[in-house]
Simulated scan of single mutants.
Amino acid sequence: MTLRARIQTAVTLVYPARCLNCGGLVESDFGLCSACWRETEFISGLVCDRCGVPVAGEDDGQPVECDDCAMSQRDWSQGRAALVYGGQGRRLVLALKHGDRTDLAHPASAWMLRAAAALLEPAPLVVPVPLHWSRLLRRRYNQSALLAQALAARAGCDWVPDSLIRSVQTPMLEGRSRQERTDLLADAIRPHPRMGERMTGRDILLVDDVLTSGATLSACARACYAAGAKRVSVVVLARVTAL
Rank of each mutant, 00 (worst) to 15 (best):
V168D: 00
Q149L: 14
G228Y: 02
E180I: 01
G196L: 05
M112H: 12
T212R: 04
R154N: 08
L205A: 11
L137F: 13
L206I: 03
V127E: 08
E180A: 02
A238W: 13
L125E: 09
R114D: 11
L206G: 05
S167I: 04
S218H: 07
D183H: 01
Q149S: 15
W133I: 11
L125G: 10
A219R: 00
V129Q: 04
A226F: 01
L206K: 03
V235I: 14
R202C: 13
G228D: 01
A117D: 12
Q169Y: 09
L206S: 02
V235C: 08
G214N: 15
A152N: 08
C224N: 06
E180S: 10
V235Q: 07
S213V: 06
P128L: 02
H192G: 13
L217G: 01
A238N: 14
L137N: 06
A188T: 04
E121I: 15
S163H: 04
N142P: 07
V232L: 13
L217M: 15
H106Y: 13
P161T: 08
A155E: 07
G228N: 01
L137P: 01
V210R: 02
I204F: 04
A145M: 13
L119H: 10
V234S: 14
I165S: 03
R114I: 09
L237Y: 10
A186R: 01
A117Y: 15
R140D: 06
W159N: 08
D208M: 02
W133V: 15
P193M: 05
A188Y: 00
A148E: 08
V168T: 07
D162E: 14
D203T: 15
I204Y: 00
V207S: 07
A153H: 14
S213I: 12
D209K: 07
L164C: 04
L136H: 12
A148M: 13
